[in-house]
Design a binder for these strands. Structure first.
Lengths: 178, 178
DNA sequence: CTTTTGTAGTTAGCCGGCTAACTACAATGA
DNA sequence: TCATTGTAGTTAGCCGGCTAACTACAAAAG
């Protein structure tokens, strides 16, 4: 059964789009809100899957990086770069992961500033136990999409990336002009 | 000029999808990551637009709600419902907005538990001054999409909503089974 | 070889989410 | 009427982002 999963169960934020003026603006504003809504609901459920295993998304990804790394160890700065987060954020995450004993700190032999993060057996076990749940969740979320629709959506997301990039350029131009 | 805005400028998180097993799984995992990426980059830029006016998205939406409300006042609980956030979160946001003098607290005449939130002239001015920037940003983000693509994307997002909903059902079933 | 510049990591403090616990009051029911 | 149950709002405390400031060390430049 394919019921309608439209955006009607959502709070009142959609009303904002009614403020739009000329033709076409309303549709664009509505799409923007739908995009935010779809992501946020999806992420809420996905976070719940992670939380059921005591994980957060970032901590899971860090465990994955370590599991795939040579000697299963990486420097915090490398983790930050791969994750796309700041060192400060990673530092805080690692603090928690050390406390959970999923990882351990090892002094770097080559650089006295650096400490390597080493995956522990417990961490290894946690991540491998979680992997099936992760892929099941992702499959479930994307299951309603046919292969053709997957391609379509990838293409449309790239267009949003382009729009984001254009907005970024505008902002930087305004910054400079100031 | 329409350059390629693919997902190559992104950190290494995409490598995760290589762990997928059977055919089709990898494509789905990749789409999942692309979806997250597109949203997060978009949101980062949009938040920047808001921050340039000293606003956050939630505070802006609250100001919009108040501007449209009768007497330009609403109870915090009503704001929370419309916004789709908890009362605790709204309480914290309002605290900041009162400090900024965008809103003021007024005792409810009918319910001694409740305080109404009243939009001030300064708040009114802030939100009306920001509105054009908001719509310009949204238009820029979505500009690369044709009207037909907007329809397409709305449809695909609804399919993701359906997948999210299915995941939710699975989780609740597991909760009950336990 | 010393000075400057850059890099690695942590900490403090802010933001905006959340849950849980608590107070004050309203509304319902025995 | 009085007891119970429910609702409005705040606070405390946690999480995961961020920037800015700081220490320690490495690397490049003089």
């Amino acid at each position: 059964m394919t019921t309608n999963y439209d955006f009607n169960d959502r709070p009142d934020a959609a009303r904002i789009s009614l403020v739009a003026g000329s033709t076409g603006e309303a549709e664009v504003a509505e799409l923007f809100l739908n995009f935010q809504w779809a992501y946020r609901e999806m992420q809420r459920q996905y976070d719940q899957v992670l939380a059921n295993s005591g994980l957060s998304e970032s901590k899971f990804i860090i465990l994955m990086f370590l599991a795939q790394a040579p000697q299963q160890q990486l420097a915090p700065s490398v983790i930050a770069d791969k994750l796309g987060a700041t060192r400060a954020t990673v530092s805080k995450l690692l603090k928690g992961m050390v406390a959970q004993a999923w990882v351990a700190r090892v002094a770097s032999p080559t650089d006295k500033r650096s400490t390597l993060i080493q995956l522990t057996a417990a961490g290894q076990q946690t991540v491998t136990a979680f992997l099936p749940h992760n892929f099941a969740a992702v499959q479930t979320i994307m299951a309603p999409l046919s292969p053709a629709e997957i391609d379509q959506l990838n293409g449309l997301l790239q267009k949003i990336n382009q729009g984001t990039h254009n907005l970024n350029l505008e902002l930087e131009r305004n910054q400079h002009a100031k």
